[in-house]
Design a protein around this nucleic acid. Structure first.
Lengths: 337, 337
DNA sequence: TTGTATGCGTTATCAC
DNA sequence: GTGATAACGCATACAA
């Protein structure tokens, strides 16, 4: 159907080898004349190489797999954009896979990516990663880079993360400097490594300022709006005393804010609040949410560059890249004391 | 490297033909015994078919191309999610392409998709579509479905859209029923077909209620926050009289709201506002934005199903699917008069 | 400077 | 039931 290398070989009265040579700009061992002639015919017939056939012999598809929980989570689009941009710059395309934090689905996708011979995989594991899936990935011998979600293994895996400890530490420190002493914490699901890290940052800052860690001020959420609502409710009904609430991500902060508004509790005058992520929503809620920004674009770009290096067989200077988050001060935290 | 059909043929002491047969569950012309034996070896060696080779001969990649302006635009993630879900259900994967509304980039992506032999393409054209690109797409003879952005051609192209006329009509009607008579309109970029449609809906409702169309109450925006801000500024400085502002999309409505807040103009008491799209942001701004919801998931699902039908050579009942939008009443519109 | 032949991993057409 | 063998479209080692 489509025009092939054979067609233009016939028309040019040469062998397909010669055609292949000029198309791939190989060893200039082709006379200027035939080269030009072939190029002319190529243009005339609007020849487009069949990348499938090419890939079959070169063992290179110039396609990357991107595995993540859910593109609908506002955390991801910017990262995905960065990945796609960077991939595109280096001549790669992206196959998008939503796993819904479902290990079965994740495993299936990994298999398909393997079968489609992607050159590499960027992998944001499901929230409670099954070591089985990461083992599967490793057995495939496909280069991969972990993104955002850390996975514990004996050997260090290549990955790009944001420093959750530092981020939360900054946020708590800011609360404290603003005069808050009783700071509640709505954490992510405790199986999640990022959640643990962020919790650690919270603890660290409290400890540093000799503030007590009060378990009844710490609630577990699910990184979703609903989790923030539920946790805030619990906090409120517990009648415990607190002036500030730190949320392990923005979505939960937004949920928490909704509850506060419902109860006519003024933000930030009565209760201050802060989040983590800096998703676009956080800049649009009222009051605008003070939060810890993840360097989205850099995360995606960095992970992709790393992956491409791996694909090209180059060595990595650092296997793990820990990016620094940045506190964004907006209007959801008030001075106290 | 990887285990192939040949390897398991050797181990099973059969020809590759037989192996292929049992793997593809073809014509049961294989003895139970050899079948079981082969299956056993397949499992043992953890054989995974090479889809490249498969595709090369079957001319089917089970891969779809998705071309859109920018996944970062909150309008898209849900649609993309629906597309990916549906594609996945039917055994297809998705290659994601961001064009940035850049016709050159768009054209390049189309070519790559062609070269990679995708089975079909879902195409949300750049905002000022170049007929050249759509012609390119048509020449490729790859099945495609237009999504959201209409393209004028002599022949009707398969596509899925939201009824912008109806949507805006509903919004204006609601404004009018709430007592508003002087309703400003911030439109999308006028080259855009969707923008024209939405404008038409605005006009239609005004006409129906015998309200005059005042050009000075109509500003052109760019579908972005910045455009909403700029247009709102213009509206305000023009000193014209109006009690409501209808924006052609939510992003511009959010921009307009920011300007109003800055100037301490109360929403909705002094000026009512509404948008179009129902992006997640619209439910989180303060006040929550009354808007016209696009049926995101249905758009993506419908387009994908359509595309797959096309790929399978089935005929379409309708070439163009026009989905109905739905007015979502929240808190940004107040009663007047 | 150019061509022949082989192989990539699979499906498909025959023949036995 | 089973197996050669060609073909898919291309790259490449080796010859000429």
């Amino acid at each position: 159907m489509a025009v092939t290398i054979k067609d233009i070989a016939k028309l040019a009265n040469v062998s397909i080898t010669t055609v292949s040579r000029v198309i791939n700009n190989k060893s200039d061992g082709v006379s200027q004349k035939t080269r030009e002639n072939i190029l002319r015919i190529v243009k005339e017939l609007n020849y487009q190489p069949n990348r499938l056939a090419q890939s079959l012999v070169t063992k290179k598809t110039n396609t990357l797999g991107l595995v993540l929980p859910d593109i609908t989570n506002p955390f991801f689009p910017e990262i995905v954009r960065a990945i796609e941009d960077t991939a595109n710059n280096f001549g790669y395309n992206l196959i998008l896979c939503n796993t819904d934090d479902n290990n079965k689905k994740e495993s299936l996708y990994l298999q398909v990516l393997k079968e489609k011979c992607v050159d590499g995989i960027i992998f944001t594991s499901s929230i409670n990663p099954k070591s089985q899936n990461i083992k599967q990935l490793m057995e495939y011998k496909i280069p991969f880079v972990l993104l955002d979600r850390y996975i514990d293994m004996e050997e260090q895996l290549p990955g790009v993360y944001t420093d959750g400890i530092l981020g939360m530490y900054q946020a708590v420190k800011y609360f404290i400097e603003m005069g808050h002493k009783k700071i509640a914490f709505i954490s992510g699901p405790k199986e999640s490594k990022t959640a643990k890290q962020r919790y650690l940052g919270y603890i660290k800052a409290l400890a540093e300022y000799n503030l007590p860690i009060r378990d009844f001020l710490i609630k577990e959420g699910n990184y979703k709006v609903s989790g923030g609502q539920k946790a805030m409710m619990e906090l409120l009904t517990s009648k415990e005393d607190f002036t500030a609430v730190l949320c392990a991500n923005d979505l939960m902060a937004i949920g928490a804010m909704e509850v506060l508004k419902q109860k006519n509790i003024k933000i930030p005058e009565e209760i201050s609040i802060a989040g983590f992520d800096n998703i676009s929503l956080s800049n649009v809620v009222d009051p605008k949410l003070t939060t810890v920004a993840q360097p989205y674009y850099e995360m995606g770009r960095s992970a992709t560059k790393m992956l491409i290096k791996l694909i090209e067989g180059k060595s990595l200077r650092k296997k793990e890249v820990i990016l620094k988050p940045r506190l964004i001060i907006r209007n959801s935290v008030a001075k106290r004391g």
